[in-house]
Design a protein around this nucleic acid. Structure first.
Lengths: 191, 191
DNA sequence: TATTACGGAATGAACGTTCATTCCTAGATA
DNA sequence: TATCTAGGAATGAACGTTCATTCCGTAATA
């Protein structure tokens, strides 16, 4: 097994255990066992557990962004661009429940708060595309003139809740339902 | 100090620490210190930590329900009833950030999942008023004909996200903003 | 005095991390 | 080609710490 493969094996094991059992249900020994390596080996690839977790998050972001942006066309209407991105995100979460659960664990932890602070205080290019979209919509008087943070909440809040419900088996989201949900989010933010 | 007062003191200390630091940042010894009792004393009031946490949750639900329903009038329009309940909830969360943070910790933990399963499988009268409201709205073709779970997500998802942003200081929610946000949620669920 | 409540030291389990040791492999040697 | 060797990678037992819980001597209460 190559170096990269082993690193990925450890990362995959850690992400799965954390997603399913939370940070505390994923001791290093268990991660090592699931990855098929010795406990000490993990420390050859990740300095400590905190760093492991933060790298998992970084990897995940890098995996998600291109997928959500795939097929995104700047020349489309604002509405279509919004529907595209929001449903791409919802679909990704539904198809990758472990990724979603890990994200939730991450955000509801000191890691997540620290991460948010960094984001608010600093650079973190990411959500720029959404911000851009909202700003454009407001300028054209299509989108409600509300703080961007609130538009975000109206767009993503329901996506997160609905994904959780889907993963926990409270509802089965099909293509129609996904489109209806995303369209309802659009209704929330439009004037 | 009376028996009940001491129980409450412990509960308050536990809720505060868990809200601020998570379940793992709230060891029993720390709860005891904050409550001004010995570590062993806690076990005279709560059989173990799991039971303590579940009782905290139960207490919290009992505290919140009457507050949200206060001033609720069955004869009001569906829209007004929705706005009333949703903004009451948002206002409560903003005014009681510790309660909100505790709820989030609870929901994002094995406790919360177990609790949800119980709710879906069984009794748990609670959200009945919301369900009732949604059903009535659908019957009158005012509310979108979507599964109740999705209407829930569209209504509460943004409230949760926005509250988190407010508590973390990313936005300052005033009366106007609260009303606008809740109204936007109404736009999301209406046909 | 008898009973109950309290406090906090003691306990043992579980955890993250370390490190002395073993294992593996690629290159050198013959 | 067969053998040896050096050095990095892997290992998992052991360590120190932290935590929930228990225990028992003391204080309050009746």
């Amino acid at each position: 097994m190559s170096k990269l493969e082993k690193r990925d094996e450890i990362a995959r094991a850690a992400l799965g255990l954390i997603a399913e059992n939370g940070f505390h249900g994923a001791p290093m020994a268990m991660i090592a066992e699931k990855a098929g390596v010795g406990a000490g080996t993990i420390y050859r690839y990740f300095e400590n557990k905190d760093i492991l977790i933060n790298e998992l998050y970084r990897d995940l972001e890098e995996r998600i962004y291109p997928i959500i942006l795939c097929g995104y066309e700047q020349k489309q209407t604002i509405r279509n661009r919004f529907l595209h991105m929001n449903s791409a995100m919802l679909r990704y979460f539904i198809e990758n429940p472990l990724d979603f659960r890990f994200l939730e664990q991450f955000h509801n932890s000191p890691f997540g708060v620290a991460h948010r602070r960094d984001k608010i205080l600093g650079k973190k290019k990411e959500c720029d595309i959404f911000l851009e979209l909202f700003r454009e919509g407001i300028a054209q008087k299509i989108v409600k003139d509300l703080p961007l943070v609130i538009l975000f909440a109206l767009s993503f809040g329901p996506i997160l809740t609905v994904t959780r419900d889907h993963i926990l088996g409270f509802i089965k989201l099909d293509d129609v339902l996904i489109d209806q949900t995303v369209a309802a989010c659009w209704d929330a933010i439009t004037a």
